[in-house]
Nucleic acid binder design. Structure first.
Lengths: 216, 216, 216, 216
DNA sequence: TATGAATGAGCCTTCATTCAT
DNA sequence: AATGAATGAAGGCTCATTCAT
């Protein structure tokens, strides 16, 4: 379903402090949390799956919730990373003349990321309503950082007459809904259905582009 | 936040078998489940909040999960009710000449329902990944019943050249994404933000309509 | 396995005060107690099996233990009845000249009784160690009444040189052991084995008779 | 009443894996089970009596029933051990020329064992009807192992004309009944009575020997 | 008399966490 | 650093018993 080593590389590469055991714990926790939910997963189960002693978990993570946060936090960080590049604006200007192209690039790139980190993403969306820490993390990152950049971006394309003149938050909402709607259906609701991914992504982009076309 | 009596009237009106205590239990369970999640809510907590003995819960609901299902199941049923009307097709034909009008009516009607049953809906989306019973219920109802009707409907408007020729499932996905995207943002993610509901709904409908406009 | 009506007739015939419901409760209780033990049987289970409401049980029997006693007590009484006939001595004198004949008659008669009341007997032997009330009942009846009569009886046959001169309690023990040993094996340990009852009973009597033959 | 250390030595000597706490748990469980019965004994009570936390019990025994089995199983094994010696036959041949001597040795030896392990034996006979696991254990050991050996043995003495020609199962039944009859009366029914053990054992053996004397 | 909803104590078991080794 | 035995609070659930109807 997903590549364990890949996760480690992509998400936890920086944190070189991670013991071999620590990695095993994280991987086990991700698997269990995403399958049964945080509250329904026991630390003993994680320990068993990770092949370590129960106590070892608590040597590295003071509490069970610490373990949760230590999984979700870097995922959020990595997910929004591309949007936080300082001079995103400039870069965009050069690379993606059309909103459509930007959209396509973003979707493909971030969808790839989500696909590769699906279990973690699942944990994130499942647990966020119940943990103020996560909620705060989310708002701080998404709202304060990503949303800000995104707004500039949208204004950029609006100024060039490529997308309709609506408040940035509305546009963000509509775009994000369409993308996440696809990802949800594809990977969470009906993962075993027979999807023609390429076609669906194209339809989604077309849908968004037409939906946001300026009323000349 | 939400009107308790309203819930009882709307969702559990038919079930006249419900004791006064049973109602209290359900209301307490809805509150707790939606706030802390099913797994993190204890039956003793529900009992205390409902003002009944813990044993009383188990007299009416064989297990804790039974209680969950007895909350979520009628919600699903009521939610999809309007879509299962036998002669939906005919009705539509007469009432909503334009897909746009149908869409608007549907959104407003079902959005109202969700708004009134938000806690229950929250429970539903939170718990569905972890409970095969709920998953089955959902698939049976939504996929088999609603989706079928919806497909006919879409074909109806496609035949009249009002919406683009795409597979029904793609259209359903795009429409549903846009609507739920609004509801999520509005009621779950940022409920305390300052929303101009009327404008947002209109924007959402416009977005959908343009997004699905036929490429003549 | 055993005849319910028979039980009612034989054991509870005198107690005409018994309601129809009461009889059903007793029968249900006997079945459950003997199958799962007193402690592991719930009153709700008995109620369900008897087809009455839970409360009904407690209307007739103040406590669960009352119910137990009301089952075991009459069984003990009926079981020892033949030994308590006032002029047992006289009767014996006339009817059974030989100890052997007395033994045979007694075994056959009481074995028949036990066979017909096996579930109750099972309850009795299972529960007696844990309930002082039953223990008292047992001692009072068996020790004080039966044993006394039996002693006279044994003396009677000893005087006639038919059985060995041992203390009555030793003889009682040996005889009872042999008989109960048969009944245990026959009805409790290996009920499904292929028993030649007639032969086994005869062997048992022979064994006892030779075992108790006087050392002339 | 019985020597705790003795039990540990005799029954659990081999199992060196037993923690100090585990031993305490076993001892406490034996006491409570034998006094009140398995179903009527709570694990919290055992924990308290053993001076450990309730959770500790379940660290060592997955369930309450596991604890029961872990007490009864070794008792059965140890009890039948002497009968399963590979060359029992040979040994007998040399040591016990007369059935009487064999009987005496066996009774004294096994009676001593039972006396020392009375609580466990009590648990065994009380719980065996309600637990298929125990029943299976019993049948496997007693029926398949002990009975087989015993049959050979009986044939041995029958061939030498020392005991009557009856089916082995009948002889086993009669002998076992007499012995257990004594043990029951002695240790379970009337333990506080004034017993002349030596005399009673002798009477029991005499009774058996005469009872089984060949009809010349 | 009979009911069965209601109770709350108590049951077996699991849990996150601690700590001596 | 790592272990895993030990903890005791808390969990879901069952129970014998009560009482208003």
């Amino acid at each position: 379903m997903y590549n364990r080593d890949f996760i480690m590389e992509e998400l936890f590469e920086d944190e070189e402090g991670l013991t071999e055991k620590q990695k095993k714990i994280i991987i086990a926790a991700i698997e269990s949390f995403s399958e049964k939910g945080y509250a329904a997963t026991s630390t003993s189960e994680i320990a068993k799956k990770a092949g370590v002693a129960e106590g070892t978990i608590f040597r590295h993570y003071k509490t069970k919730k610490d373990l949760l946060v230590s999984i979700v936090a870097p995922m959020i960080a990595k997910f929004i990373a591309p949007f936080v590049i300082k001079d995103l604006y400039k870069v965009l200007d050069q690379q993606f003349e059309r909103f459509e192209d930007f959209l396509k690039a973003m979707i493909e790139n971030r969808a790839e990321f989500l696909k590769n980190n699906l279990p973690m993403f699942k944990i994130f969306i499942q647990e966020i309503p119940f943990h103020p820490e996560l909620k705060a993390l989310f708002k701080e990152h998404i709202v304060n950082k990503v949303y800000e950049r995104f707004s500039e971006l949208i204004k950029h394309y609006q100024d060039r007459g490529q997308i309709i003149e609506l408040p940035a938050y509305s546009i963000v909402r509509l775009v994000v809904s369409s993308i996440f709607g696809y990802l949800f259906g594809r990977y969470l609701l009906f993962p075993e259905a027979d999807w023609d991914d390429e076609a669906e992504i194209e339809r989604t982009i077309d849908f968004i582009m037409h939906g946001l076309k300026p009323k000349n």
